[in-house]
């Protein structure tokens, strides 16, 4: 018999190793540490997430103006780069830490932990954490805050909510901004509100025009501030 080929057994033994390792555990643990630190220091932290250009910074600006006599406020301002928005908010006399992610499309608990070290927590009662403009990724990375706001605007069209159901599942308050433009955009606000309600009946929906400040008091009330 002619030998065509030789099959060699690999040396060693094959083992099945149980790892059961959670890939997102590292972020979840850091978020928990942030949550505990904030609670211990008596700081109420609120995430502000939302699409690009929806009006997250404008909403924070308006809330800061209304709340700064009642609370000692600080703001973390997440962006890929630049401190443009951080400076806009800083003009209102509150502490702002700009978090530049460089290339990442969302904040994570590690970056927030670093920013918390730069802040005098003893002198802070209320912290707004503005995420990078994005309706997808921030849903996956909890930061350790107490409440979450999601901001969208009518200029993004009528399907923003149904296209991004996951981020609304975690939202305590959904803000629909730029309502003064709804008619021009042909967007039905009641339909957007109903979409939010369908996904998470517990999410409170507020309509705003953050340029004039219309509806901002209702956002503040929805956050129990």
């Amino acid at each position: 018999m002619k030998i065509n080929d030789v099959v060699k057994a690999e040396e060693g033994e094959i083992f099945d190793i149980e790892l059961d390792e959670n890939i997102l555990k590292a972020n979840a643990e850091l978020a928990q540490q942030n949550r505990e630190l904030l609670r211990k220091q008596g700081v109420k932290a609120i995430d502000v997430m939302g699409s690009i250009g929806a009006g997250k910074t404008s909403l924070i600006e308006k809330m800061v103006q209304k709340l700064k006599t009642h609370y000692r406020i600080a703001v973390f301002k997440g962006d890929l780069t630049t401190t443009i928005d951080a400076e806009i908010i800083g003009k209102h006399g509150v502490n702002v830490v700009a978090i530049n992610t460089g290339k990442e499309c969302h904040l994570d608990a590690n970056l927030v932990q670093k920013a918390l070290r730069r802040l005098d927590l003893e002198a802070t009662d209320l912290l707004f954490i503005e995420n990078v403009g994005n309706l997808i990724c921030p849903a996956e990375f909890p930061l350790g805050s107490e409440k979450r706001i999601v901001v969208i605007s009518v200029t993004e069209g009528p399907y923003m909510v149904v296209k991004h159901p996951f981020i609304f599942m975690d939202a305590d308050v959904a803000v629909i901004n730029k309502i003064d433009l709804a008619e021009a955009m042909g967007v039905d606000i009641a339909k957007l509100q109903n979409d939010v309600k369908k996904i998470n009946p517990k999410t409170k929906t507020v309509t705003t025009n953050c340029r004039t400040g219309k509806g901002v008091d209702q956002v503040i009330a929805a956050l129990n501030l």
Binding site: G12, E13, I14, F15, I17, N22, P201
Partner: peptide, 20 residues
């Protein structure tokens, strides 16, 4: 009622088969 999410937001490496 409104439900709470129990699982589905995770990614696990369950087992690994290795030649040792």
């Amino acid at each position: 009622g409104t439900v709470k999410i129990v699982s589905g937001k995770d990614c696990f490496i369950k087992t690994v088969k290795m030649l040792i």
